[in-house]
């Protein structure tokens, strides 16, 4: 039941060669050969990461201080992009939306815990069938998911509003109405990741020794008390892992917005779009639609700051509530 984070931390520590008594280790005759092999084995991924990931990050940082001309070429403009950005309503709105997605997206966690707890009840029939059904959206292409929901949400011909009309409710144009669009999108996000989170939680719950519950049972603790005193604390590493993933995922939301909100002209003609625009979508629009790459780079640097801050807060807070067994 060691969870990600403990595991990761331990391993980073052990990654530094520990001083092991030399005679107890059998080594190849030439230490040099071992190192050479190691470098060779690491080389493909190492070079690939360097060329396609590390170097580009530095370049993006550099680009954020440049302005791109209509026919390529860029010139250094210092902090201009950042100054524009700080006063740009579009950017601030996108940042606000992104934070809203992130916070609301966390609501999916209790829901997943609930279903995982139900599935974890002993001798329940059909667990694997339920689990498979809940997992279906996880393996479905996000673009396809977004299209299906766009259709379900259709204000005039959508299934959801039809079902509501049976109950006498006149449903809104869910994703075209500025008042509901963001929440409708969050719901799809939660729907999509629910199965994944359930699987993680279920694995976490199943690794909790039965004896704990038995002992609690003997002490006369009810199901709810057991859940609160045993399941939740011992599940806290999984909860932490899922919440970190959920936050990072929400902060980079793109696919759903691209398909359900549109892009380019379609997005511009969508009255709800300013309410659902995310930072990554705005970045895409600036970098590849209006070709304002310097400004796009600055926007994505702002996103990096947001991610670092929110993740740091999470790691800081984890000390208060995550228990490692």
């Amino acid at each position: 039941m060691t969870m990600t984070v403990t595991g990761a931390a331990d391993d980073v520590r052990t990654a530094v060669p520990a001083p092991v008594p030399a005679r107890r280790r059998r080594r190849w005759r030439h230490r040099g050969a071992e190192a050479a092999w190691a470098y060779l084995l690491i080389a493909p991924t190492g070079l690939g990461l360097a060329v396609f990931y590390l170097w580009p990050v530095l370049q993006t940082g550099y680009f954020s201080f440049t302005e791109w001309g209509p026919f390529g070429g860029h010139e250094w403009v210092g902090l201009d992009n950042y100054r524009t950005l700080a006063a740009d309503d579009e950017v601030l709105t996108a940042l606000r939306n992104t934070v809203a997605y992130t916070l609301l997206g966390l609501l999916g966690i209790p829901l997943a815990v609930l279903f995982a707890a139900l599935l974890n009840r002993p001798r329940l029939r059909g667990v694997s069938v339920y689990r498979a059904l809940f997992f279906l959206p996880v393996v479905t292409m996000p673009v396809a998911v977004a299209m299906v929901w766009r259709w379900l949400y259709n204000g005039d011909y959508g299934l959801i509003n039809y079902l509501l009309s049976l109950a006498g409710v006149d449903g809104p144009h869910w994703i075209a109405d500025p008042a509901t669009a963001l929440y409708a999108m969050v719901a799809v996000g939660i729907w999509t990741s629910l199965g994944y989170n359930i699987v993680i939680f279920l694995a976490g719950m199943q690794s909790i020794p039965r004896e704990y519950y038995e002992a609690a049972s003997i002490d006369g603790a009810g199901a709810l008390a057991q859940f609160r005193r045993i399941t939740l604390p011992l599940l806290s590493p999984s909860l932490f892992f899922v919440s970190v993933l959920s936050v990072i995922g929400s902060l980079q939301l793109f696919d759903l917005v691209y398909v359900m909100g549109g892009s380019g002209q379609a997005a511009r003609a969508n009255p709800a779009f300013p309410r659902i625009q995310t930072v990554v979508h705005l970045f895409y629009d600036k970098a590849f639609y209006t070709n304002d790459r310097g400004y796009a780079a600055a926007i994505v640097m702002a996103l990096l700051v947001l991610i670092v801050v929110l993740t740091a807060i999470q790691f800081r807070l984890q000390k208060r509530w995550v228990h490692y067994g």
Binding site: P17, A38, T45, L49, Y53, T60, I248, L251, V280, V300
Partner: peptide, 29 residues
Amino acid sequence: LRFPGRGLLFGVFLSVLMVPPPLFVIPQY
């Protein structure tokens, strides 16, 4: 395997894991 710079290199690898994809995209393009 044991080799000089193992911890450092692994740290560099991990750092890539922390960076969101939009940060790579313009230069990759």
